[in-house]
Design a protein around this nucleic acid. Structure first.
Length: 234
DNA sequence: CCAGACGTTGTT
DNA sequence: GTCTGG
DNA sequence: CCAGACGTTGTT
DNA sequence: GTCTGG
């Protein structure tokens, strides 16, 4: 799943990578984006992509309080079209969530080992996301987002059994297209098959308030899937 | 009809 | 807001 | 995701 | 154990 990620670029680099109309304003670089924090998302604007910082953890419009956001940091792509908390946003408020990596805590003996997952060439990722608007009692808006998840691809499965949906190329445009059909949308919600670097990192990242580059400091060499012939315990 | 839930991950 | 369960 | 709280009365 | 906050 995806409960922590990074966006280690400047607003200028983000704008260039996604051909944005304007340079977005957000505090950067980010090495430890955690739920309830603000992070930039990309939505389809008048003519092109626009970015705005919104809060991670989708709060349904009917929720009593923003606390509901903590339970909606992810949406399962298998059920997102039907769930009351997500279906409206799935129909009309899809977005991309830019990142340059994400964290998974490797299942197994305690303490769990955080692993930073990023592309070899550091190209930016675009998670499939949804956004929503909630109103404070005084009428002010709170805009929030969630990240869609899917089954883990084979290359990451030994670390974790879920992963964020990562969109490439035309799939990004389709995801943002208001005219896209449910069947088309469903077709892009699949595991990223291209392997990435699985880099064990410092447990500094565990604490959400630690936001320094220490979070992506390598601890040992990147990990790889155990070879089948070595899995004698199965 | 009203009341209560509405979510994911992981763990068991 | 909308659906499910009682 | 992990970390930290989980409670009240009364006093400062 | 479970919920909330970051």
């Amino acid at each position: 799943m995806c409960g922590r990620y990074s966006l280690g670029v400047t607003p200028e680099e983000l704008a260039a990578a996604f051909e944005l109309d304007e340079i977005p304003s957000f505090h950067a670089p980010r090495y430890n984006i955690a739920p309830t924090q603000d992070a930039p998302i990309l939505i389809r604007g008048e003519d092109g992509l626009r970015a705005g910082p919104v809060r991670w953890g989708l709060v349904p419009h009917w929720a009593e309080s923003p606390a509901a956001g903590s339970r909606h940091i992810n949406a399962r792509s298998e059920t997102v079209a039907k769930r009351p908390a997500f279906r409206d946003a799935f129909r009309s408020r899809r977005c991309l969530v830019p990142a340059d990596g994400f964290y998974e805590w490797q299942e197994g003996p305690s303490p769990k080992q955080p692993v930073w997952i990023h592309r070899e060439d550091r190209r930016l990722l675009a998670f499939a996301g949804l956004w929503e608007r909630w109103r404070w009692p005084d009428g002010g808006p709170l805009v929030t987002f969630t990240v869609l998840t899917t089954d883990a691809a084979p290359w990451i499965r030994f670390v974790h059994d879920r992963m964020p949906v990562i969109l490439e190329g035309d799939d990004r445009l389709l995801w943002l297209d208001p005219e896209a059909t449910p069947a088309e949308l469903k077709s892009v919600l699949r595991p990223q098959s291209e392997p990435m670097v699985l880099q064990p990192v410092s447990t500094v990242v565990n604490r959400a308030t630690n936001e320094s580059a220490e979070c992506v400091r390598p601890v040992g060499a990147p990990v790889t899937s155990p070879k089948p012939e070595l899995r004698l315990d199965l």
